[in-house]
């Protein structure tokens, strides 16, 4: 049986994590092709419904990557994102999907290596958790589709 390849949606702030992804590419870093990057104007623009939607549409895992505390371009967007992620984790636990499938990471623009590490760590975490129970038929197919690389 082929190894499960999770589908992970990474909502990345353009001022940090998204820029770090560019840097990871410039540095020729290899990272998990399982993540699908969505550029956000700020991690603080993430909304509860968008995260749940990602899971409903087939994501096995979701993470939001924002600036370090104190570094937000809009001052407090990352703090708000952290609170929203905590709230949605609670909902995911309540409905049985599991809050572990969702996470927030701090990824500064200058840390391409951290971007790659976060992508790899989250992929490994979701691989351990297994396919989302909502995707019984589609046990992940990142390799087939060709995941995003730097």
């Amino acid at each position: 049986m082929p190894e499960f390849e999770p589908k992970i949606v990474a909502f990345c702030c353009r001022y940090c994590a998204y820029t770090a992804a560019d840097l990871a590419g410039s540095m020729r870093l290899q990272y998990s092709p399982n993540i699908r990057v969505v550029e956000m104007p700020c991690s603080g623009t993430i909304e509860h419904g968008v995260i749940l939607n990602a899971f409903e549409k087939g994501a096995d895992g979701v993470y939001i990557a924002g600036c370090n505390l104190g570094d937000c371009h809009f001052l407090k967007g990352n703090v708000r994102a952290i609170k929203r992620v905590a709230a949605v984790k609670k909902v995911l636990d309540e409905i049985g999907l599991g809050g572990d499938r969702l996470e927030f990471f701090h990824v500064p623009a200058s840390e391409g290596t951290k971007f790659a590490k976060v992508a790899n760590d989250m992929t490994e975490r979701i691989r351990q958790l297994g396919p989302s129970p909502l995707n019984k038929s589609a046990a992940g197919n990142a390799k087939k589709e060709g995941g995003q690389t730097a």
Partner: peptide, 18 residues
């Protein structure tokens, strides 16, 4: 509107899992 969408989504996921 937002809370309504979130609740509907959460309920769909819960019921699918069940």
């Amino acid at each position: 509107e937002k809370e309504t969408e979130v609740m509907a989504s959460a309920m769909r996921i819960k019921r699918t899992l069940e």
